[in-house]
Design a protein around this nucleic acid. Structure first.
Length: 1066
RNA sequence: GGGCCAAUAGCUCAAUUAGGUUGAGCGCCACUCUGAUAAGGUGGAGGCUCUCGGUUCAAAUCCGAGUUGGCCCA
């Protein structure tokens, strides 16, 4: 790009972003930037791998944009940042997609198709999805190492998981166990609790009577899963809860039932009983030990019937809900299972992995459990055990992938027993710093405290195989071999295999055996839970252990950055694995952001088609705008509502920046300004106050941004930058500096302005670069013309330069701007347009600082307020035309007046006095003061009241009133003369524009005004008019552009034509 | 059903991290400026600070209960 070259008139994001993409390609911008920092201190960032199914949605886009902004910022601070993106490519979601694609219904179809073929299909599918995600991320302008992502399906990565698992095994944390798990009967595998999705469904709701053995009557239990009744083993009560036995009557028949006292009415109503009487009241504890008969004893001959079974026991999970008694089947529920084991009861589970009853289920054998509900209900009714049968809407767990209702069963699974290292886990939490901190101390800690052992085995195909071999004669963890990597595998297996050709997927290791000490070991056929894959990312991303060159230097990660759903996901799985394998937390800092919500606050949902597509956002506003919008949201914990208005605002801000940037270019180009020659140091002595001011503001902006960035609040940093660009540079500095740039001759002042705005723009684009990488680079290229780096992203993060820091000047100008604003307000009140001069503006300063500021910048104020004179009334003097009222300070009034403070405040606010002193004020509010009370100086501040003919507006800084600007709007002939002349000038300018005349084009002008007085006033300023509108001649115009105007009731007719045209027609 | 977080102007968010008369930007309306012009300026309307209770002279802020939304878990 050539320095100060022509740029688009309008900010056009699409053309610009395409140009920049091409440019980045041409100069290898990313590669250069990485290389540029290769000697810097290393910063180990680890990318949380998105799952490769579906495309990038707004949440992923926000996540990657956040990662990008921090990576770019860190690079600019000089760090050599690891930026390897990752993809999570194994697991059930992909298997189910592929099954759908191939039209499969269950595991049998897969077995027939062939395991190796199926794995190949899964890999192909995952690769396709990866491509889609990669191209999206690149399209968003995210700079990561796209040529070399870590993929959880590569052997290098898979052995990172093997290695971690083997380390955990070495520490004795790997165990095979009989546990109650959530099983998807379609996928025929255990699924993790966090893979269970709850949905509202209609299920049976049955109240069942269990007949008591040693006494009359029955206990009543309630359940929504009739299919678990065959496995009933005991009934649970709350020992402290009060229960009642009641004799209830229905259609003339009586029976005795036991339920919790609070549930009596509800149960009897449910069973349509007519009447009842209470027989006894007792605690749950008193009921413990009662024996009952299994209601399906005949249908299920194998039901649990040991001595201690079919009794009432106490349990913690009982609530006074429905009946207050809980049907408990250790084979079909985690809590029941735990309690059943404590009680030493058998764990009876007559259901296989596919959800079908086994032969242990008696007459129900061969039926799918959910389908057996109906028959079981019928049988219970026949037995007389059914008190009531209906349906209920409630939420029930479903498989996250195939949406099949889960069943709780007991199976053999492999676990990492993280409960054995719970204390270590809790300690390790302390070693990481979270933003926001509450996420760690409340949410994460609670979760870790509650976390059960981690079931890592899945009975599926597309995953990392468990590296566990067991002896042929037993399949528990007693004598297992855990292989840690490919090298060990090649060495120990019986078969001849090549290191480089072991893919490590199931089809390549299933047949391998190990024979040692005369014993042959075979592989456990399970694959890992997919959460285990990403849990080893902190070393997997380094290809450790196969490549150990950087592990010692980098590990653990300096930063990870994900959304709050990962508290129970990746934040947790990494901590668990890191602790189990290495005894340490694998990350040091966590930035936890929220979710992207719809504009109305709903969650986005792809399946329900409730979403904002990032591609649409880009089509409408461009990448930079989308990123700015996303990054303007608080990244710590809060959710983000997407907003098209917010997007538009960011586009407006960028357009303002674009206008500021292109404004000085033509002048710099014409004057041949060379920023390398004409540096700020060079023009230092010629800098005007406004230049020094904008440079001072630049320093405080940098300081504020750096602080916010280091606090992981890039949104605050962005706010500071945009305020600087829009408020300070665009609305104030550029306005003030324009005339200096229009000067045609060379001048020191103009050079100073060039050097100043150049520095401001040059640093601004560096500050903006992490957020809006495209527009920043284009501006940078135009400003530097190749004299510096090839891309702005190689720049250092701009540091504060003490030399230009000037807090006092910043405050001065803040005062002036406040005064100017108040003056403009007062003008409007007085009904005087800015175009018309006013004879004087009186500034009443409340303190010395304000007075100083006004004295030093009188000219600037005169100019901007279009006042003939600025009159300063200093703090110690009073402007005698004023009256006063008082404003109460409640922080003083409150303690002094207690409950009457509000009353006193109102009286003070209404008081009007001539002199601002306390005596006069006390007299004015005497009627609300009681004996001995007085108004102290600290309680009030006096406020001036505006006199007639003069409009006054108070100005303040940071919320504190600092004085008042009074505009005297009285008219004199001189002022009217200039006012009307300006009215004419403005209209002529507009007509010049109608004709599309060049700025320099000379014209001939004719002005006709009927009102003689106004005509003569305008005539007095003929010279001014001619100069301003470049009129060579004031005379009758024959064929020119002619228009009639009404200027506040005065009719004017104006005509003009270019001199050239006028001469031609003469 | 439980845990965590949030709730302030039409929208997005602030309110100096142990209370003191609620603010900004955007949007809307009116006016205004015009050599950045699909810009700029000024003003206006718009708030029982989600509800109820408590502590206090004083609560958006502290405490308790609830409502709604989000995430996680059951």
């Amino acid at each position: 790009m050539s320095r100060f070259g022509e740029v688009d008139d309008q900010y056009d994001p699409h053309a610009l972003e395409q140009r920049v993409f091409d440019y980045w390609d041409d100069v290898d911008a990313y590669e250069q930037t990485v290389e540029h920092r290769s000697d810097g201190d290393s910063f180990f960032f680890v990318d949380g791998p998105p799952y490769t199914s579906g495309s990038a949605h707004m949440g992923t886009t926000w996540n990657k944009s956040l990662k990008d902004v921090y990576i770019r910022f860190l690079r600019m601070q000089g760090y050599d940042v690891t930026d390897r993106p990752g993809y999570d490519m194994h697991g059930l979601p992909i298997e189910t997609r592929v099954e759908e694609r191939l039209g499969f219904e269950n595991k049998k179809d897969i077995e027939e198709f062939g395991e190796d073929e199926f794995i190949r299909e899964c890999k192909e599918y995952a690769d396709e999805q990866l491509e889609g995600l990669q191209s999206d991320f690149q399209d968003f302008g995210v700079w990561m190492d796209w040529d070399d992502p870590y993929r959880t399906v590569e052997p290098e990565y898979m052995e990172a998981a093997w290695w971690g698992f083997s380390k955990a095994a070495e520490r004795g944390l790997v165990e095979k166990g009989h546990r109650s798990i959530s099983q998807c009967p379609r996928c025929e595998t255990a699924i993790a609790n966090n893979e269970v999705e709850y949905e509202d469904v209609e299920d049976p709701s049955i109240y069942v009577k269990f007949d008591l053995q040693d006494r009359e009557g029955s206990v009543v239990v309630w359940t929504t899963t009739p299919w678990t009744i065959p496995a009933n083993t005991f009934v649970a009560v709350d020992p402290d809860l009060t229960y009642q036995g009641v004799r209830a009557e229905r259609e003339g028949e009586e029976e005795v039932i036991y339920v919790a006292e609070d549930c009596v009415e509800g149960v009897l109503k449910e069973g349509r009983y007519d009447d009842y009487e209470v027989l006894e009241t007792l605690t749950g504890e008193e009921m413990v030990g009662w024996e009952y008969e299994h209601p399906l004893a005949e249908e299920v001959p194998d039901h649990v019937d040991v001595d201690d079974a079919l009794q009432i026991y106490d349990a913690e999970y009982v609530e006074a809900d429905r009946t207050g008694l809980v049907h408990s089947a250790p084979g079909h529920g985690e809590e029941d299972f735990e309690r059943g084991r404590e009680l030493g009861l058998p764990i009876f589970c007559p259901v296989a992995g596919d959800g079908v009853y086994t032969d242990q289920a008696g007459t129900y054998e061969g039926q799918f459990v959910k389908e057996a509900d109906e028959e079981i209900i019928a049988d219970l009714e026949d037995n007389g055990a059914m008190l009531s049968s209906g349906t209920v809407h409630h939420s029930y767990g479903h498989c996250w992938r195939c949406d099949t209702g889960i069943v709780q069963i007991v199976t053999d699974q492999w676990f990492i027993t993280i409960t054995d290292v719970k204390d270590e886990l809790l300690d390790n939490i302390e070693d990481s710093e979270w933003h926001p901190q509450w996420a760690r101390d409340n949410r994460f800690r609670d979760f870790v405290e509650e976390a059960p052992d981690w079931n890592v085995s899945r009975q599926r195909y597309w995953g990392i195989p468990l590296p566990v071999w067991t002896p042929e004669d037993r399949d528990d963890d007693e004598d297992m071999i855990v292989i840690s990597d490919r090298e060990e595998l090649v060495e120990r297996v019986d078969q001849e295999i090549e290191y480089d050709s072991v893919d490590l997927h199931k089809d390549t290791v299933d047949e391998l055996t190990i024979t040692e000490d005369g014993k042959t070991y075979t592989r456990v056929p399970d694959v890992f839970d997919v959460w285990l894959d990403s849990s080893v990312a902190s070393w997997g991303t380094l290809n450790y252990p196969s490549d150990d060159s950087r592990f010692d230097e980098l590990w653990p990660a300096d930063l990870i950055l994900e959304a709050h759903d990962q508290t129970r996901g990746w934040f947790w799985s990494q901590l668990g694995m890191g602790t189990a394998a290495l005894g340490e937390s694998p990350y040091q800092e966590v930035l936890m952001h929220g979710h992207a919500l719809m504009p109305d606050g709903r969650a986005m949902s792809k399946s329900k088609d409730i979403l904002i597509d990032p591609h649409e956002a880009i089509d409408r506003h461009g990448r930079d705008v989308m990123r700015l919008f996303l990054l303007s949201n608080n990244p710590q914990g809060d959710d983000m509502r997407f907003s098209w208005d917010g997007m538009q605002t960011m586009e407006d801000n960028l357009r303002t920046l674009w206008n500021v940037f292109r404004f000085p270019l033509p002048y710099m180009r014409l004057d041949g300004f060379d920023p390398q020659e004409t540096t700020l140091d060079e023009v230092d002595t010629n800098l005007e106050l406004i230049d020094e001011w904008v440079l001072a503001r630049l320093q405080s902006t940098k300081a504020e941004m750096t602080e916010a960035f280091e606090d992981y609040r890039q949104d605050k940093a962005l706010e500071a930058l945009l305020e600087f660009v829009v408020e300070d540079v665009s609305r104030f500095y550029v306005q003030a500096v324009r005339e200096r740039m229009w000067e045609e001759e060379d001048s020191a002042s103009k050079e100073a302005a060039y050097a100043t705005i150049y520095r401001v723009l040059r640093e601004t684009v560096a500050l903006l670069a992490p957020y809006a990488p495209f527009v920043s680079d284009e501006i940078y290229g135009t400003l530097t013309g190749g004299a510096e780096h090839d891309t702005v992203h190689m720049c250092d993060w701009p540091d504060v330069e003490e030399y230009w820091v000037d807090d006092q000047l910043e405050e001065d100008v803040a005062f002036l701007r406040a005064i100017e604003e108040a003056g403009a307000n007062a003008r409007q009140q007085a009904g005087r347009k800015l175009r018309w001069p006013v004879p004087r503006v009186v500034v009443a300063a409340d303190d010395e600082r304000v007075a100083e500021a006004v004295e030093r910048h009188t000219d600037l104020l005169e100019d901007r307020l279009n006042a003939r004179e600025i009159e300063l009334v200093s703090a110690e003097n009073r402007w005698e035309e004023l009256r006063y009222s008082a404003e109460a300070d409640m922080s003083e009034l409150g303690p002094a007046f207690g409950g009457r403070a509000g009353q006193v405040m109102n009286a003070l606010n209404e008081a009007r006095i001539d002199e601002p002193d306390l005596e006069a004020l006390e007299a004015a509010v005497a009627d609300v003061l009681e004996e001995g009370e007085s108004i102290e100086e600290s309680m009030v501040s006096f406020v001036t009241e505006t006199p007639d003919d003069i409009a006054g507006t108070a100005f303040s800084l940071d919320g504190d009133d600092r004085g008042v600007a009074y505009v005297d709007a009285s008219l004199t002939a001189d002022i009217e003369s200039e006012g009307y002349a300006r009215e004419v000038i403005r209209r002529v300018q507009e007509m010049r524009k109608d004709l599309d005349l060049d700025v320099e084009e000379r014209i001939v002008l004719e002005v006709e005004i009927d009102d003689d007085r106004v005509a003569s006033l305008v005539e007095d300023r003929e010279d001014l008019i001619r100069e301003e509108v470049r009129a060579d001649d004031l005379r009758t115009v024959e064929d020119g552009h002619r228009k009639e105007w009404d200027v506040d009731g005065v009719a004017m007719e104006i005509a003009l034509e270019p001199v050239a045209a006028a001469e031609a027609s003469d």
